[in-house]
């Protein structure tokens, strides 16, 4: 009998060693980074922009706030936050993947957004910031790729200021059975084909569909947030629950 069995986690529908997941996710995003924005628009028919707008609407962001846009990818949220926090505020665009950060930095520089944005490569499970540092943390379409999500939530709780809030925008479980079936068909049949045609990478988009199904549903994620210490935790289903926006506060 093995006395020290290797801990495992899921990578889509596959079971892999915990130590391997981060690098496997990294490979996916290195592969899709350059086509990330185009594919987002194509796959969601542009609706991802509305989901992100709803996240900003729920953020309560004001001038002078310090914001961490975790798994910020190509910086859609950071771009808006940077304008809304002004010169006295600060936005940190954090991502575990250097390719995504590179694309994000280039995009934001081209938009003329410089001065109040920092780019930091980081692991959500061990955030490299002191306690009580941020007024707002957002993680949009990133949590499901994190190996130990509970650890990441505890880490986010630690660096939030008292009164600060966490917003998690993530794929979730559709509320209606019919929508769920249509969504499954779309995710497992059309989406990988689209990935193959546009980004020449159907495997990454197969992983996307699988990882969404393995992600905790609305109530489970809410319970995980409560367990990590967040209070007044609520969620809002967007587009019939295909995506959910969870919100929790630290007091």
């Amino acid at each position: 009998m093995n006395e020290n069995p290797e801990k495992t986690t899921h990578f889509g529908y596959k079971t892999v060693a915990e130590t391997e997941k981060a690098s496997m996710v990294a490979d996916v995003f290195h592969s899709v980074a350059t086509k990330y924005d185009v594919m987002n628009d194509l796959m969601s028919f542009g609706i991802h922009r509305l989901w992100k707008r709803q996240t900003i609407a729920s953020s309560g962001i004001r001038k002078g706030h310090h914001v961490l846009d975790l798994a910020g990818g190509t910086g859609d949220l950071t771009a808006k936050f940077s304008q809304l926090v002004g010169d006295t505020g600060q936005v940190v665009l954090g991502d575990i993947n250097s390719s995504m950060l590179k694309v994000g930095r280039e995009k934001l520089h081209n938009l003329g957004l410089v001065g109040n944005i920092d780019y930091v490569q980081m692991n959500a499970e061990a955030l490299p910031f002191p306690d009580n540092s941020f007024d707002l943390i957002t993680i949009a379409f990133g949590l499901r790729n994190v190996t130990d999500q509970n650890k990441a939530l505890r880490s986010m709780y630690r660096i939030l200021k008292p009164g600060g809030r966490l917003l998690i925008l993530e794929f979730s479980k559709p509320e209606q059975e019919l929508l769920s079936k249509a969504y499954d068909f779309y995710s497992f049949n059309i989406l990988p084909t689209m990935g193959k045609l546009v980004a020449n990478d159907s495997e990454s988009y197969q992983y996307l569909a699988e990882s969404i199904r393995m992600h905790p549903d609305q109530e489970t994620l809410k319970a995980m947030m409560n367990e990590a210490g967040f209070e007044q935790t609520t969620y809002q289903n967007l587009t019939g629950g295909i995506v959910a926006l969870h919100r929790g506060f630290k007091y």
Binding site: Q236, L238, T239, G240
Partner: peptide, 12 residues
């Protein structure tokens, strides 16, 4: 409104 996110769309 929540499904189609019409208010957000119109506001954008």
């Amino acid at each position: 409104n929540s499904f189609f996110m019409l208010p957000s769309f119109v506001l954008s």
